[in-house]
Amino acid sequence: MQLSKFTDYALRVLMHLAAADGQQMTTRQIAEMHDAPYNHLAKVTQWLVKDGCVTSNRGRSGGIQLAKAPEEINIGVLVRKLESQYALVECLRPDGGTCKLTPECGLSNALIIAQNAFFTALEEVTLADLTTKNPGMPQLLGQLLHDSELN
């Protein structure tokens, strides 16, 4: 299974905010650190705000920050929300796709089981597990921020 770029960026934004330890960051800062398109990251940030993981403050001293403690943000729940709109294979699309094997195929059921196992495994992980409980991550993210400010 491959995560969408949207999900990848959502996880990166959350990791940066967790490492910022309550300090605001801007979407532009995070985009620059990852050489990511600002407009795409802005859409990701909007989704995270709408989902309640992030708060956004407008204005000159505005920015984004976590709306919840890192321990309260479940990675599996988040990834399931973001990735449930994408079918692993054509026959799992809401319209059923056009695969001729669908009526008798056992693959779709096996893939559904595998996908659920993937999400279930991620439900054991919180944002804190990825960041604050990982001693090297805050330092690495801090270095990325420092490097981006020099450029």
Rank of each mutant, 00 (worst) to 15 (best):
C99R: 08
I64H: 04
D21E: 11
K5W: 00
C99V: 10
Q46N: 15
V77C: 04
S108F: 01
D147S: 11
N151K: 15
R12E: 11
N39M: 13
V89I: 15
I30N: 07
A19N: 12
G142K: 12
G142F: 07
L127R: 00
P70F: 02
L92A: 05
L130N: 02
E83H: 05
Y86T: 05
D95V: 06
P138N: 05
K68H: 15
S108T: 07
L48C: 04
C91M: 14
Y9I: 09
E90C: 08
F119P: 03
I112F: 06
F6W: 03
P70V: 00
E123L: 10
I112W: 03
M137Q: 04
N134T: 10
R60N: 10
E71S: 12
N39R: 15
E149D: 05
E90D: 15
D8G: 10
N151C: 10
Q46W: 11
I75R: 02
I30E: 06
E83N: 07
T102P: 09
T132L: 10
D95W: 08
V125T: 12
L145R: 10
I73P: 02
M1S: 07
R80Y: 10
P70Q: 00
R93I: 05
V13A: 01
L130C: 08
Q24H: 08
K68T: 03
L127I: 01
Q65H: 12
C99M: 08
M25E: 13
K81M: 07
P94I: 13
I75G: 01
T45E: 04
K43L: 14
E124S: 12
L150V: 12
A67P: 01
K133Q: 04
A87M: 11
L14I: 01
T27D: 06
Y9C: 04
T98L: 09
A117R: 02
L3K: 02
A31W: 01
N39W: 11
E32M: 13
G97I: 10
Q139D: 08
L150Y: 13
S56N: 14
A121R: 14
L66E: 02
G136E: 09
Q143G: 05
C91N: 11
T45D: 03
I64R: 05
L92G: 04
V79T: 08
N109V: 12
V49A: 05
E71A: 12
P103V: 11
E123C: 13
R60P: 08
V54L: 06
L17Q: 00
T102C: 12
A20M: 00
S148M: 04
A36W: 02
L145H: 03
L145Q: 08
Y9D: 10
C53K: 06
V13C: 02
V44N: 09
F6K: 00
L41K: 09
A110F: 13
P135F: 06
E123Q: 14
L17A: 00
L140F: 07
R93P: 06
L17K: 02
N57T: 14
A117L: 10
N39A: 15
M1F: 14
V125D: 04
L11D: 03
P70W: 00
C91V: 07
E83Y: 03
T7Y: 07
L141C: 00
